[in-house]
């Protein structure tokens, strides 16, 4: 564990708390992509079920339980409690275009051709693109509530911080994980446009609006 990874994980944790706060206080999931949230459930279940056979630390297990639990809870909120505020007609990204390529990539690129390792690779690839339905929805509506952009910023910062973590681990432990690093760089890259608008507009007190 190093500071980059810890801050990254805390940013990830914060992003989910911000999202829950947004949904609970506004009693609405407007502006949130159900598809992205469903993909995160798939990511967490595929990767974190290893907590049943691989113990790393109490911190690691507790975070895994939290991420699986909170992501399922968010789906429940969107699908049941605040269902009327969820508008599927603007959440139109075709997720099979993500699921199928990720499944194929995980069969080719993995560290061992066994179900648990293929699932691990699949979750890494899927996580890197799971935000696309959300970004696509943002692009379509052209604007977002400030709190939704804080959620996205925290989520993006989480992955961005994993990059210095890998650089640090390369120099201190001599290890490099090509699958995680490649997917992580792609994932962070997807946020660059969003970050630009977030830092130049939202943090300056302006509304999040995309140029037409």
């Amino acid at each position: 564990m190093n500071l980059f990874r810890l801050l990254g994980d805390l940013s990830h944790l914060a992003s989910i708390l911000v999202l829950l706060h947004k949904i609970q206080t506004s009693r609405s999931c407007r502006g949130i992509s159900f598809k992205t949230q469903a993909l995160y459930v798939a990511v967490f279940v595929a990767r974190y079920l290893d907590l049943f056979w691989r113990y790393i630390s109490l911190y690691n297990s507790a975070m895994k339980v939290f991420f699986i639990g909170s992501s399922c809870y968010i789906l429940y909120l969107m699908k049941y409690r605040y269902r009327p505020t969820n508008d599927p007609s603007i959440d139109t990204f075709r997720i099979e275009y993500l699921l199928v390529p990720c499944a194929i990539l995980s069969l080719i690129f993995n560290y061992n051709f066994m179900p648990t390792e293929i699932l691990w690779s699949f979750s890494i690839f899927l996580e890197s693109v799971a935000i696309l339905p959300q970004l696509f929805m943002l692009q379509r509506t052209g604007e977002a509530e400030a709190i939704t952009t804080h959620y996205l910023a925290a989520l993006g910062i989480y992955r961005a911080l994993y990059i210095p973590n890998w650089i640090y681990r390369y120099f201190t432990e001599g290890v490099i994980d090509p699958i995680a690093v490649t997917a992580g760089i792609v994932q962070t890259g997807l946020y660059l446009d969003f970050f630009y608008v977030y830092f130049t507009k939202v943090l300056q007190g302006q509304k999040f609006e995309l140029p037409a």
Binding site: D9, N60, F67, N112, W120, I124, Y162, N165
Partner: peptide, 10 residues
């Protein structure tokens, strides 16, 4: 063990 360091990451 798989030759991956990231299995201890979240």
């Amino acid at each position: 063990a798989p030759p991956s360091s990231s299995h201890d990451e979240l």
